[in-house]
Amino acid sequence: MDISPIVFYGSIFVLAIFVGYYVVWSVTPALHTPLMSVTNAISAVIIVGAIIAIGTESSGSLSMVSKLVSFFALIFASINIFGGFLVTQRMLAMYKKKGKKDD
């Protein structure tokens, strides 16, 4: 069976929206701020695009410019990944501290 990539990824996309819808509604309002920082971190998985662009040899006349652009994309995405996950961890640690005290 031959399906075009856009239909294939489109199907995944639609299903993931539904998964996201139900999963996000289950997040407790107290953790909405960590939700935002962690979604920031995971959306930086776009870093794979930057890595592919840097790491793949190509012969186009603009491929050097492309590498430079990707290098900056790599920096921005890394800021997002490290900043997002670490700040989430920092926030969640504060919620944990309390849990212990209540035991």
Binding site: A41, G60, S66, F76, A77, I79, N80
Partner: peptide, 30 residues
């Protein structure tokens, strides 16, 4: 924290723009 999240959001947006540019300039790689 709101500023932090706004800053992280802007990085996310910028990465998307830059990766789109990278793909545009060097489509063979992708």
């Amino acid at each position: 924290m709101p500023q932090m999240v706004a800053a992280l959001n802007s990085m996310g947006g910028m990465s998307a723009v830059l990766v789109a540019w990278a793909a545009f300039l060097s489509p063979g790689s992708f």
